[in-house]
Amino acid sequence: MSANSLLEARAIDAFYGASHVLRGVDFRVGRGETVSLLGRNGMGKTTLLRTLMGLVPARGGEIRFDGDDIKGRRPSAVARAGVGFVPEGRGIFPNLSVEENLIFAEREGPGGRRDWTREAIYQLFPRLLERRANWGNQLSGGEQQMLTIGRALMSNPTLLMVDEATEGLAPMVREDIWRTLRLIAERGVAIVVVDKNLDDLKKLCRRHVILVKGEVVFDGPTGELAARDDFVRSQLGL
């Protein structure tokens, strides 16, 4: 494992019921690096995130995070190691206020870091400050998404994994989410993003990984992605 590697997964296999979803996937994220995970629907993007998080068991291969072997650990242990997860579908606590949702997740990060406080989250998402007394179920889709990202940050992760954060959001809100993710990356948090908007991903991420039927078919920097445009378009169905 190279010195600046944060997450290093090698030869990961995973199953969903009887179907073999991930087939020997290698996936690496450096410290503070921004990586996009691309592919058509049903190719294994979400499953890869869930496997890294420990929500789907990895069969075979190894997963190392910050030097530790995290394969087979419970999701709670993976989170404590410094991985924040923003799942598809958000999953905020509907009967807690915005503020309570944030307090719930408050925790020191690895090495006792406390970069992200409630104040910092409110600075990042002024909208959440306005709505901080509202219940989770009174928020609009965009506000829920902001809260989910904010909540993940409250645990001071060194890696943030974001699954389809802009899905179902109005264009202006989408723009907000992308801008915030760039700000988070500037503060040194490594980010893995699954999304459909290639143009936005190119602006945020330096490296891109394409999954096809559970295998990595492309892994390279933005420049190479642009250079192999035809290949990329055919793989993504653009």
């Binding site: 058509r40 629907n41 598809e88 389809e164 899905e167 179902g168 459909k196 993504l236 169905g237």
Partner: peptide, 11 residues
């Protein structure tokens, strides 16, 4: 209601 949310370009 938001039929395209979550769909790839092909779909």
């Amino acid at each position: 209601d938001e039929p395209l949310a979550g769909m790839g370009p092909e779909e």
